[in-house]
Design a protein around this nucleic acid. Structure first.
Length: 291
DNA sequence: TGACACCTGCGT
DNA sequence: ACGCAGGTGTCA
């Protein structure tokens, strides 16, 4: 379900509800595989009694900082949800973890498909974890030149490359298709075959698509809710992912198409995002820059 | 790079 | 009944 804009929105909505509060107790339900590390008993014991000092996001992970120096990471995968509610509110179906907070409220984690994962990491473990992830696309220090070099140093198909969290973090199926559509680049192109101009265009459409979605508090297709239980409003902003195959492209009017690339459904406009007729010139080598 | 696994639910 | 889903991990 959530990609960078959704995870960032959840993080922002949870922050004022959690920061400065103590986690009195951690209740893990019958589905203990949602705890990736350490073992569930240690996870609960090391968190109980700690205070939340800060919330952050790294890629698609929510990072809960504790006064012990440990960090709790949460990945919502497809259908995970976090919400802070009063303890007497009805417990929803598929609730797998509850943190009882000081002053009575509860942080509740529900996940229909049970793909989401929690971890508790020491400072050293967190550094290693973060270092294993790719570039943050909205980092002010992330430049078009850096992105171009990243693309040209690989020879990967673009769609799976954008979804590779060790390459760049936070992009998922929705925003990969949206960014490629707006940059008019076919998702099956190879990363090292993009021109300089195409790499710069993709850099900007990635950032614009993500910041735009964040401004609309994320895209709710079905399950996604923020930390207050509110859906996002970005669905109406989507220009390709939300279309059906055969619908007219809102740019050129030709029918849009659905492909499967890297085992993922992929929406595109075959006309706007045509494959280059002559791959020899697509790379735009330095010697031709005079033209 | 692909096939399949992990899960449940929804639309056709 | 079947295909599909906002994600990722593992195996060949």
């Amino acid at each position: 379900m959530p990609e960078l804009p959704e995870v960032e929105t959840v993080t922002r909505t949870l922050a004022p509800l959690l920061c400065g509060r103590r986690i009195e107790q951690v209740d893990i339900g019958a589905y203990t595989r949602c705890i990736a590390a350490p073992d569930p008993a240690s996870f609960a014991a090391r968190i109980a009694g700690r205070m939340v000092t800060n919330l952050a996001r790294r890629g698609k992970f929510i990072v809960i900082g504790l006064d012990s120096g440990d960090r709790v990471t949460v990945h919502l995968r497809m259908t995970g949800e976090l919400a802070v509610t009063a303890p007497d509110a009805p417990i929803p179906q598929h609730t797998h973890l509850v943190m009882e907070l000081s002053e009575g409220d509860q942080l509740r984690y529900t996940d229909v498909r049970k793909f989401g994962r929690w971890s508790l990491l020491s400072p050293d473990e967190y550094e290693a974890f973060s270092a294993s992830l790719g570039a943050e696309p909205l980092d002010p220090l992330f430049t078009p030149e850096q992105f171009r070099d990243m693309l040209w140093s690989r020879k990967r198909i673009l769609k799976p490359l954008l979804l590779d969290q060790t390459f760049i973090t936070g992009i998922g199926n929705i925003y990969a298709d949206e960014a490629l559509f707006r940059a008019r680049i076919h998702p099956g192109r190879r990363s090292h075959e993009l021109s300089e101009a195409e790499s710069v265009a993709l850099y900007h459409t990635i950032r614009n698509v993500l910041t735009g979605a964040l401004a609309h508090r994320g895209t709710t297709l079905r399950n996604y809710r923020d930390g207050n239980g509110q859906p996002g409003e970005n669905l109406a902003q989507l220009r390709i992912y939300s279309r059906n195959a055969g619908d007219p492209c809102d740019e050129c009017g030709n029918p849009v198409a659905r492909l499967v690339i890297g085992q993922r459904g992929t929406m595109l406009c075959p006309v706007c995002q045509a494959l280059p007729q002559n791959p020899e010139v697509a790379r735009a080598p330095d010697s031709s820059r005079s033209g």
